Simulated assay, not measured.
Amino acid sequence: MNKQRIYKVIFFCQGQVYEVYARSVAQGGLLGFVEIEELIFGERTQVVVDPSEEKLKDEFAGVKRSYIPMHSVIRIDEVEKEGKGKISDAGGNVTPFPMPVYGSTPKGPGE
């Protein structure tokens, strides 16, 4: 049985939490990034249209591969089947990793 794997990737981006489904997740060729490929979206034949999923489809339209900064990833799960991708506000208990990663170092007294 040749069953393709499906991954649910949840990550933080610009004050929102993204939940996407993909067929391929790997440590990318870029240091510090997670590479996701072959994003999966729900069927367009559904009668009920979810505005959050439509926004996600529009944002990733034409994207072959996406690189997500490793410190933005909240969770990656291998799942049995895909669900609905969504974008939601980062309220509640989701706290982003302290930013910026790169910056000037604080100077001590007398410097």
Score class of each variant (00 low, 15 high):
3 K>Y: 02
3 K>S: 12
4 Q>K: 12
4 Q>Y: 06
5 R>Y: 04
5 R>D: 14
6 I>C: 05
7 Y>W: 14
8 K>R: 14
8 K>C: 11
9 V>N: 11
9 V>K: 08
9 V>T: 13
10 I>V: 15
10 I>N: 10
13 C>N: 15
13 C>L: 15
14 Q>W: 06
15 G>Y: 06
15 G>K: 10
16 Q>M: 13
16 Q>H: 14
16 Q>G: 02
16 Q>L: 05
17 V>K: 11
19 E>N: 08
19 E>K: 13
19 E>W: 02
22 A>I: 04
23 R>K: 12
24 S>M: 10
25 V>Q: 01
25 V>F: 05
26 A>C: 11
26 A>N: 10
26 A>D: 08
28 G>E: 02
28 G>V: 06
29 G>R: 07
30 L>A: 05
30 L>Q: 12
31 L>P: 06
31 L>E: 11
32 G>F: 09
37 E>R: 15
38 E>G: 06
38 E>F: 04
39 L>I: 05
39 L>C: 00
39 L>E: 00
41 F>S: 10
42 G>W: 04
43 E>Q: 06
44 R>L: 09
45 T>P: 01
45 T>R: 04
46 Q>T: 02
47 V>E: 02
47 V>L: 00
48 V>S: 00
48 V>I: 13
52 S>H: 09
52 S>T: 03
56 L>N: 05
57 K>M: 04
58 D>V: 06
58 D>R: 13
60 F>A: 00
61 A>Q: 07
62 G>F: 01
62 G>R: 01
63 V>Q: 07
63 V>Y: 13
64 K>Y: 09
65 R>L: 03
66 S>T: 15
67 Y>I: 01
67 Y>S: 05
67 Y>T: 04
70 M>N: 12
70 M>Y: 15
73 V>K: 03
74 I>Y: 01
75 R>L: 07
75 R>S: 04
76 I>K: 00
78 E>P: 02
79 V>E: 01
79 V>A: 01
79 V>N: 00
80 E>N: 04
81 K>G: 06
82 E>I: 10
83 G>T: 07
84 K>Q: 07
85 G>P: 00
85 G>S: 06
86 K>G: 12
87 I>G: 00
89 D>T: 12
89 D>P: 03
89 D>I: 03
90 A>L: 10
91 G>R: 04
91 G>H: 11
95 T>M: 08
97 F>Q: 05
97 F>W: 09
97 F>S: 04
99 M>C: 06
100 P>E: 08
100 P>T: 04
100 P>A: 01
100 P>L: 01
102 Y>S: 10
102 Y>F: 11
103 G>E: 02
103 G>I: 03
107 K>V: 13
108 G>M: 15
